[in-house]
Design a protein around this nucleic acid. Structure first.
Lengths: 172, 172
DNA sequence: CCAACTGCTTGTGTTTTGCAAGTGGTTGTG
DNA sequence: CACAACCACTTGCAAAACACAAGCAGTTGG
């Protein structure tokens, strides 16, 4: 965002980092969509961010310490964006916001299922998901839990709804 | 914000309502600063919103169902802005955002104390505070609890820090 | 009666955003 | 080894959002 500081209030400072129209959506795609490259973030999101805005936000988020960028060893031009611990800890913010959205706004069934699961799972589920993100993004090993990960559970629930809708459509 | 809908994602829809630079700050001032009139919101905030932007956001938030506006019976020109249940339930979002800000950003001691208390109090304290807001803004009676309200506790903690700093400054 | 206050609106300049096209380079394939 | 596809961005320009200062019709309190 801007460099000037409006006030030392916690909420204001947080908004100066992620309080624009796109930053939290980018972080959402990294967290829930497992996007790690510029091109993935540009093309595989539902909202369609402009390339210049995406480039600018990624730079800003790296400067703010929410993301890191490193070169992809498998491809000289690719960069890999990873969440920092600071970025991972935005998950509760996103979860609360999603819970609010799902309660009061016309969220589509496909896209709302993850918000609902995350709300029902509560802070315990968030913590587990954050541990998974620490493993993926920071390389911090975690104790293996039995059963599927939170990430997998969210993904499968989403896919199940999409399949259900596709089936309904076929019948009609 | 804009009328066009980018996607049916819960987080995206939430951001379309409160995802600009000012909306959440206005709601913060109403919740934590107990501002209810246009002029209070305009002049008693640390950040200094422009009058036209404030007017526009209040209108948008009323249309979105986050706030209501009624005439002040004591003054023909004054309007009273109140939170709806939908607006009150933004408190957890603000609380999470504040907790994140206080952990990672250069929050001033005065302005951070409330965020810390709210974080340490956890969801239980948030629920109590929301009940107090329901009483103030919706007129819904709540069971009286013993001891000072959450709102009072937050205010007193803030004032104590301000007083402490003033004392330090006098000594220096 | 009048200064101060009320919730806004208006006008103007600046910043941010959105869209389309382009850039220099890398990679996979026939 | 030529060439199309892909890579992360950049550039130029129009549109929208924002910031600042001033103004407005009406109300209130002294």
């Amino acid at each position: 965002m801007t460099d000037i500081q409006r006030s030392g209030c916690a909420i204001n400072l947080a908004l100066e980092v992620v309080g624009d129209k796109w930053s939290l959506l980018i972080i959402r795609d990294i967290i829930f969509g497992n996007r790690r490259h510029y091109r993935e973030l540009l093309t595989k999101s539902d909202e369609g961010i402009s390339s210049n805005i995406l480039a600018d936000r990624l730079k800003t988020l790296v400067e703010a310490g929410v993301l890191t960028r490193e070169d992809d060893p498998t491809h000289k031009q690719k960069g890999i964006y990873s969440l920092t611990e600071q970025g991972i800890e935005l998950l509760p913010v996103l979860a609360q916001m999603a819970a609010w959205g799902v309660k009061y706004l016309p969220v589509s069934e496909e896209l709302g299922i993850r918000a609902q699961l995350l709300r029902d799972g509560g802070p315990k589920m968030w913590a587990e998901f954050m541990d998974e993100l620490r493993e993926t993004h920071l390389g911090i090993r975690r104790r293996r839990k039995s059963g599927p990960s939170v990430g997998e559970r969210l993904r499968k629930a989403y896919e199940a709804i999409v399949a259900k809708h596709a089936a309904t459509k076929r019948k009609a």
